[in-house]
Deep mutational scan, measured.
Amino acid sequence: SDEELKKRIEELVRRGNKDEARKLAENANSDEARKWWEKLEQL
C-alpha cells in the first residue's frame, strides 16, 4: 500500500539512505510515493 511504502521511504531517508529511498519511490510506480520522496528530500 502507499502508506506502507511512504513509511519505508521515510525510514530510509531518516537513516541517511537516500539513494535506496529514491529507488524505492521510483520503482513503486506510485505518484504518491514519488511526491512523498520529493518532499522528504527537501528536508
Rank of each mutant, 00 (worst) to 15 (best):
K18H: 15
L5Y: 05
R14D: 03
L40T: 03
K6E: 03
I9Q: 00
K18M: 15
D19Y: 04
E38V: 05
Q42Y: 07
D2M: 15
N29K: 12
S30E: 03
K7N: 09
L12N: 01
A21D: 00
R14E: 05
E41W: 14
W37S: 01
E41R: 14
K23T: 09
D2V: 14
R15N: 12
K39P: 01
E10Q: 10
R14F: 04
L40V: 07
A33T: 14
L43R: 08
D2C: 14
L12P: 00
N27I: 09
E10G: 06
A33L: 15
R34V: 07
V13T: 02
R34Y: 11
A28N: 04
E3L: 12
E32T: 08
R34S: 04
L24I: 06
N27D: 13
N17A: 13
W37H: 02
V13H: 10
K6L: 15
N17W: 07
A25W: 11
R14L: 12
E32F: 11
L40M: 11
L24M: 06
G16W: 01
Q42H: 10
R22Y: 05
N29G: 13
I9D: 00
W37G: 00
E11T: 04
K7M: 10
D31K: 06
L24E: 02
E3V: 11
L40H: 04
A33F: 15
K39D: 08
L40P: 01
W37F: 15
K18P: 09
K35V: 09
E4G: 07
E41I: 15
E20Y: 03
K6C: 14
D2T: 13
E4A: 12
E3D: 13
E4S: 09
L43H: 07
R15E: 10
N27P: 02
R14M: 11
V13M: 15
K6T: 04
N17C: 15
W37D: 00
A21T: 00
L12Q: 02
A25H: 01
K7V: 06
D31E: 12
S30Q: 04
K18T: 13
S30R: 03
L40R: 03
A28I: 15
L40G: 01
R22V: 03
V13W: 15
E41D: 10
A33E: 03
N17S: 09
E32D: 10
D19L: 07
A33K: 02
N29I: 09
S30Y: 05
K6S: 04
E26L: 13
R22G: 02
E3I: 10
K7L: 10
S30A: 04
E4K: 07
G16P: 00
D31Q: 07
K7Q: 10
K6D: 01
L40Q: 05
A28C: 14
E20R: 04
D19V: 08
E38R: 06
W36G: 00
Q42F: 09
K23D: 05
L43C: 14
K23Y: 05
R22H: 04
R22K: 11
K6M: 15
D2I: 15
L43G: 08
S1Q: 10
K7S: 10
E41G: 07
L24G: 01
D2W: 15
K7I: 05
K23S: 08
W36A: 03
K23R: 13
Q42G: 11
A33G: 04
E10H: 12
E38K: 08
A33R: 04
E20H: 04
W37R: 04
V13F: 15
K6P: 00
K7D: 04
R8A: 09
Q42D: 06
K6N: 05
E20K: 04
K39A: 13
K39N: 10
R34P: 01
G16T: 00
W37N: 01
L5I: 06
G16L: 02
R15A: 13
R14Q: 07
E3Y: 11
L5P: 00
W37Y: 14
E41Y: 12
L5F: 07
K7W: 10
S30C: 08
K35H: 09
G16N: 03
A33W: 14
W37E: 02
A25V: 15
K23N: 07
L12R: 01
K23C: 14
A21E: 01
E11F: 05
R8D: 02
V13S: 02
Q42T: 09
R8G: 00
Q42N: 09
K7R: 14
E41L: 15
E4V: 10
K39L: 14
A28E: 03
Q42L: 11
E38S: 06
E10K: 07
K6R: 11
N27G: 11
L24Y: 03
E3R: 08
E20T: 04
S30K: 03
E20P: 01
E10R: 11
E10C: 15
K35N: 08
L5S: 01
L24V: 06
E3H: 10
A28Y: 05
E10L: 15
W37K: 03
L5Q: 00
S1P: 12
L5H: 02
D19P: 03
L24T: 02
N27H: 09
R34T: 05
K18F: 15
L24W: 03
R22M: 06
R22F: 06
G16K: 02
E41N: 14
I9N: 00
E32L: 09
E32A: 11
L12I: 01
A33D: 04
L12F: 03
K35G: 07
D2Y: 14
E41T: 15
D31V: 08
K35Y: 05
L12K: 00
E32H: 05
E41K: 13
E11S: 09
R34D: 02
R15Q: 13
E4Q: 10
E11G: 05
R34Q: 06
L43T: 09
I9W: 02
A28M: 15
N17D: 13
R34G: 02
R15S: 13
R22I: 04
G16Y: 01
E32I: 09
E4P: 05
R14G: 04
E20D: 06
E20A: 12
K39R: 13
A28R: 04
N29Q: 12
L5D: 01
K35P: 01
N27M: 14
D19W: 06
I9T: 00
V13G: 01
Q42S: 12
K35E: 11
R22D: 02
